[in-house]
Amino acid sequence: MRTPAISLTNLIGLEGVSRSDIQTLLDTGFYFRDVLDRPIKKVPILTGINVVNLFFESSTRTRISFELAEKRLSAEVVNFSAAASSLSKGEGLKDTVRNIHAMKMDAVVMRHPAPGAALQLSRFVDAVVINAGDGTHEHPTQGLLDMMSIREKFGRIKGLKIGIIGDIAHSRVALSNIFGLNTMGAEVTVCGPGHLIPPFIEELGVTVNGDVDAVLEWADAVNVLRIQRERMGVGIIPSVREYRNRFGLTVERLARHKKEIVILHPGPMNRGVEIDSDVADGDQAIILDQVLNGVAVRMSVLFHLLGARELLEEA
């Protein structure tokens, strides 16, 4: 395989990542997607490379997706999960750094509850840092897999109209989607309850529209965000019923729109809250493609940040 190098050395977020880097990461993602469809799914690209998956928040899906990507590339994988409570005891990034040094890791895939933690970590360690979600900041590989899934469906990203619906304020998926989609030339509208739309978000180059039906009428695809149950009934979201009626992707709501729209969801889903089961499992949803593309695009990221240089030199 011949592939152009990317200019990134870590993947902290999609903000500021160039169009050509995203293009390359997606192209390579599609290459690995083909590999995943082969009978033998393992390639010896990262043999001898040590990767640690460092999860300060539980996220089974993301961790498994990364782990699968690492193993398909033949990397040595270590998993380390720490409860977020250990962070509040002051066992912060510093201790993490010490451990990584001691373990002589080549790459760190980190999920952390605090925005900025991945960037902070990258300042302290020599290892390649891949952000697997830093609080309410970014989740760049999710942004990439969403874009890959959109491109798979439409053959392009540029010029598409994408709606992001839900709790924008507490979502790392929303920001990575916004940065990536803007760079790739899509138009983005965010939609959700007024107090869950972060202030000044228009300055990030998106439109805000609180009317889900209007957004569905406008969009080519919508990314439906998970509403965290913790926010229900504690004065933030008054009730499941109200949320579902006003913002949920219900069967009835979709039936009112004649146009076919593509539906994404980063998972895990609250069926019957932000999305009805029949919608999630229906023809318009590409949620399972997203899962497969997640593994492929994470292979692409690992390949470019850890393996591509040597391969290119050999070529």
Partner: peptide, 15 residues
């Protein structure tokens, strides 16, 4: 500070 920058950084903003 709560601003476009806090939104961009995903950090909780103080208005």
């Amino acid at each position: 500070n709560q601003s476009a920058l806090s939104t961009r950084l995903g950090l909780p903003g103080n208005p």
